[in-house]
């Protein structure tokens, strides 16, 4: 996709270049600024059209000892689904200088170290870094899209699909964000009814119980 200088009319769905990402980070007007912090090592993190993000210290680890299943086929059972989801995960915090191991086949929720806020005319896509992916570590299965208006730390769906355990530490660059410019949305993420994950600090467990299909 061609990049567009900032003084021209925005084109729907344009991928931001490195310079455009920097420009958006420095916008004085908060309504058009991409806010992202901490930006620890921009010369390493900034790619031609992406920005690497790092792993934080907080994890949500599945615990399957006494939860037999999570039934999404029921209606009006939001409380029951929520209770099972809550029992299915355990919060763990790793020390900033610590480490943790993701064994083959294991799944955990992690989050970005960076806190991000997108303006209403920018969407983002979270992708794994290929160097990490080639070791068998996936950082998301479906939750790669970040809506305009989102603010918070992004949740990673960490899964080791390789054959060897992978040792991870807070601060590791595990993913990258690409930013897309679009026309201003009518209903940004933080204004959406049933929005579940806005303002997140740390990984968020599934909020599936808030889906209208389960609560109505």
């Amino acid at each position: 996709m061609a990049t567009v200088p900032s003084n021209q009319t925005p084109i729907l769905g344009t991928l931001l270049s490195d310079l455009e990402i920097l420009d958006r980070i420095t916008r004085i007007d908060n309504d058009s600024c991409i806010f992202i912090t901490p930006l620890i090592d921009p010369d390493v993190q900034l790619g031609p059209s992406s920005l690497d993000v790092r792993l934080s210290t907080k994890l949500e680890v599945p615990v399957t000892l006494d939860v037999t299943h999570i039934d999404l086929a029921v209606r009006r059972q939001a409380d029951s689904v929520k209770a099972r989801v809550e029992r299915n995960f355990q919060s763990r915090a790793i020390e900033p200088e610590g480490r943790f191991v993701l064994h083959p086949g294991e799944f955990s929720l992690g989050s970005t170290l960076e806190f991000i806020r997108l303006p209403c005319d920018i969407a983002a896509r979270l992708e794994g870094r290929s160097s990490i992916a080639r070791l068998g570590l996936e950082v998301h299965s479906t939750a790669g899209f970040v809506d305009p208006g989102y603010e918070g730390e992004l949740t990673f769906e960490l899964k080791n699909v390789g054959r060897l355990p992978v040792v991870l530490r807070p601060g590791l660059r595990v993913a990258q964000l690409c930013f897309f410019r679009l026309s201003n949305v009518e209903r940004p993420y933080n204004s959406k009814p049933h929005q579940k994950y806005g303002g997140s600090v740390g990984p968020r467990r599934s909020g599936i119980d808030k889906d209208p299909e389960l609560s109505q």
């Binding site: 934080s56 200088e97 730390e153």
Partner: peptide, 20 residues
């Protein structure tokens, strides 16, 4: 509560950055 969560986020980022 939001302020506390931002304080935790600030501290997590800060302390992790110091280890890098």
């Amino acid at each position: 509560t939001v302020l506390d969560s931002r304080a935790v986020s600030s501290l997590t980022g800060n302390l992790t950055q110091r280890t890098l």
